[in-house]
Simulated assay, not measured.
Amino acid sequence: MGLEGFLERVRERRTEAGAPATGPSPGPVFLIGTGPGDPGLLTLRAVQLMQSADVVLYDRLVSDDILRLVHSGARMVYVGKQAGYHTRTQDEIHELLLEFAEAGATVVRLKGGDPYVFGRGGEEVQYLASRGIRVLAVPGITAAAGICAELGIPMTHRGVATAVRFLTGHSREGAEAEASLAEAVAAAADPHTTLVVYMGLGTLPKLVEQLGAHGLPLGTPAVAVERGTTAEQRVAFAELGGLMDATAAHALRSPTLIIIGKVVALAPGWGEWEAAGRPRELAAAAWSARAALPDAAAAVLGRASAAAEEGEGRRRGGRREAAREGEGAAAGAA
Results as ranks from 00 to 15, higher is better:
33 G>S: 05
23 G>S: 06
170 H>Q: 13
15 T>C: 08
186 A>E: 05
153 I>T: 03
47 V>N: 11
205 P>T: 07
77 V>Q: 05
37 G>F: 05
178 E>S: 12
34 T>Q: 10
238 A>W: 00
30 F>V: 07
206 K>Y: 13
110 L>G: 09
234 R>D: 04
146 G>A: 07
59 D>N: 14
106 T>K: 02
40 G>A: 01
187 A>T: 03
308 A>C: 14
161 A>Q: 11
143 A>N: 03
158 R>M: 06
141 I>K: 04
313 G>L: 15
205 P>S: 07
100 F>E: 14
244 M>N: 11
205 P>E: 03
93 I>A: 14
10 V>Q: 14
33 G>T: 11
74 A>S: 06
137 A>N: 05
162 T>K: 12
185 V>E: 15
332 G>A: 09
86 H>Y: 15
258 I>R: 11
126 Q>A: 14
46 A>W: 12
9 R>K: 03
23 G>V: 11
106 T>H: 11
282 L>W: 00
3 L>S: 08
223 V>M: 12
46 A>S: 09
231 A>V: 03
282 L>A: 06
182 A>T: 01
5 G>C: 04
263 V>F: 09
33 G>H: 03
120 R>H: 01
226 E>G: 01
317 G>V: 04
275 A>W: 00
45 R>W: 05
58 Y>M: 15
278 R>H: 08
31 L>W: 10
281 E>T: 10
187 A>S: 04
155 M>I: 09
194 T>N: 07
128 L>Y: 05
167 L>I: 07
226 E>L: 02
102 E>A: 15
129 A>H: 01
317 G>H: 00
104 G>L: 09
131 R>L: 05
252 L>H: 04
274 E>M: 05
59 D>V: 06
236 A>N: 00
92 E>M: 08
